[in-house]
Design a protein around this nucleic acid. Structure first.
Lengths: 351, 351
DNA sequence: AATTAGCACTCTTGGTAGGTGAGTGCCAAT
DNA sequence: ATTGGCACTCACCTACCAAGAGTGCTAATT
């Protein structure tokens, strides 16, 4: 559909804007009469009707049935969000709430949960926050414990107090003492470095040491390689306030709800969506079917990545009906992401 | 209400049984005509009506409205379940499914998840399994890392490869070396003992050592005390197939669903309910309002504790509408609990 | 040429009325 | 004690009507 100036002059856009705002506000299809009063253009309903017919031809609005008003289509919402929206500054109380909730020098995992909860409570929709990527995180301590056969339990601590563990399989069988030694060696070598740095250093050291060093060190490096290779950063997110979504009449249909909640518990689709927004920075919006997932047909997703020191760590967002107050939600998500990023900044690395 | 023999003779009970079975089967209030045909008593509808009136007086059944049939009340279900039920043996295919799914010598955490999923899939309702209690679990290794100020990160491994961590606050500030020493001491002292044993040994040792031993050991014991005291076994459960519940018309009401799913995400009420069934062993059933939680008004919960070596570790159960096929669900839950217990048995503690 | 008033038309919504069928409670007959 | 008969209740379905909202089109107005 070509959006040329002839059809889409300022007046049409102004009316589209008013229509979308009005529909978002009270959820009823809006007709020419209402729109005529609501817009400040002083046009008669008849004129409005002509414009509306044009907008309908362009696929921006449509009628649920003959004698109802019009509601925005996905394209309509998209045009509105991209070009017509006048964002409102975030509510001061909300801001205070968020700052307060995320100010504590808390365990990052808790902060993610808190952020999600805050989002859902303040928007009355669902809040979602991905766990921070682990690449940009500092290795603090590593420890190996022998299991049966050739399996080793690796425990490592990052960023002050996050504990991770993983079972790896080695070719050789190591004794507890050997493992202890390896851990000591690796701790002295890599402790305090970022995981990314550790990974690259590992490869370099492995190559170098292949020639000269003693067997014990080589073994240690090999075990470390097994530990840090491959994606064990199990993508995951924290979702809150899902039940808020049950309140919206647009989503009240039983099958819809079931699909939606299934998607939430399967996680896969949601993760994929959030991953997409991870790449871009700034606020990203998926409106209705734009997401590509049937379960989210009637939903919009407003996300923003959050980052520490200009490195994107994860994504946070709001899931709600397409009919949501974008002008408030967008700045809200934006600000929350920034605050979360700031709160996660481990400046307070008291030794 | 007194259930004397005059009102509750065999015939009445027989009819109640048939009525409940019929209602469970097709969800419609059952009237005298149907009941007359369904029961093998060869009684006319009129007679049936008299009996039904008695049953209604006793509070065992009731009519949604004048010209509908009767449906069981909570007491009716209760009587049915306690005295009238003829349980069916578990379906062989289901049994195979469960055995297969839980046979693997898997990480216990995964097994809990699998069990929950299996329950929900095979019953088409929601499955819930609590995480195993940690008391009956063996300490393998403990480790302390200093954090800022007087905080210490405790990492301990139980049962081969389960890693737990906790932050504790001490009066004194310890150095890394001191903590290392303490950990070594505790490992040599307690490694291989059950947590329960460790707890009681700790108290005894503390009392004894208060008099004689050196400061370092005393410190170590104090730290250990902080570690193991108080409930850090954050009660939790794994829920699956919640969305199955959306399919039941009894629960389809929006507010009901919202309450129910809220209860699921708050977890508190569910945990409390499951805790209650933890005490008893064998299958426990909460029917409708018996649970005492409004959110579960229209639900029944069939649970059974699962145990290893006769020690109860946790609870597993099915959540569904009160109108569920108890005669199948009860043995199903029973068997699943037994299989889970067997699968969790760490007989394969290869050193 | 753009805007508007007027009008016929469509479609939802809500209310009323009537008919049907399932089921009951009660009474009198068996 | 059991049963057939009967009047009665109530949910449910349908049809129908009126009101109201909104539209598209056309002709008049600016």
């Amino acid at each position: 559909m070509s959006l040329n100036n002839q059809d889409l002059n300022d007046r049409s856009l102004q009316l589209l804007k008013t229509l979308v705002e009005r529909y978002i506000h009270d959820g009823q299809p809006v007709g020419s009469r209402i729109l005529s009063k609501d817009s400040e253009l002083n046009l008669s309903p008849a004129t409005i009707r002509n414009v509306m017919a044009d907008l309908e031809d362009l696929g921006l609005i449509h009628s649920p049935h003959t004698s109802a008003g019009r509601i925005p289509t996905v394209s309509g919402y998209r045009l509105f969000v991209d070009n017509l929206l006048t964002v409102k500054p975030i509510d001061k109380k909300d801001l205070a709430h968020i700052s307060l909730g995320l100010s504590e020098n808390d365990d990052p995992c808790n902060m993610i949960g808190t952020a999600s909860r805050l989002i859902s409570e303040l928007t009355n929709m669902a809040g979602v926050v991905t766990l921070p990527k682990r690449e940009l995180v500092y290795l603090r301590h590593i420890e190996f414990l022998p299991l049966s056969h050739n399996r080793i339990l690796v425990i490592f601590v990052t960023n002050e107090q996050e504990v991770h563990n993983k079972v790896i399989h080695t070719e050789k069988i190591f004794s507890a003492a050997e493992l202890q030694q390896a851990a000591n060696y690796l701790n002295s070598l890599y402790s305090g470095h970022s995981l990314a740095a550790v990974k690259s250093a590992l490869l370099k050291d492995l190559k170098k040491d292949q020639e000269l060093t003693n067997q014990a060190m080589l073994d240690a490096l090999k075990i470390a390689k097994l530990t840090f290779e491959s994606g064990h950063q199990k993508d995951d997110y924290v979702l809150s306030g899902e039940t808020n979504l049950m309140g919206f009449s647009e989503l009240a249909d039983r099958d819809h709800l079931k699909n939606l909640f299934n998607a939430f518990s399967q996680k896969r689709d949601v993760i994929h969506l959030l991953d997409q927004s991870m790449k871009a920075d700034g606020v990203q919006i998926f409106i209705g079917k734009e997401s590509g997932y049937q379960a989210f047909d009637q939903c919009s997703l407003v996300t923003s990545s959050y980052s520490v020191n200009d490195e994107i760590l994860g994504v946070l967002g709001v899931i709600g009906p397409t009919r949501m107050a974008y002008e408030k939600i967008i700045p809200f998500v934006d600000v929350t992401a920034k605050i979360l990023g700031a709160a996660l900044n481990p400046k307070t690395t008291t030794p």
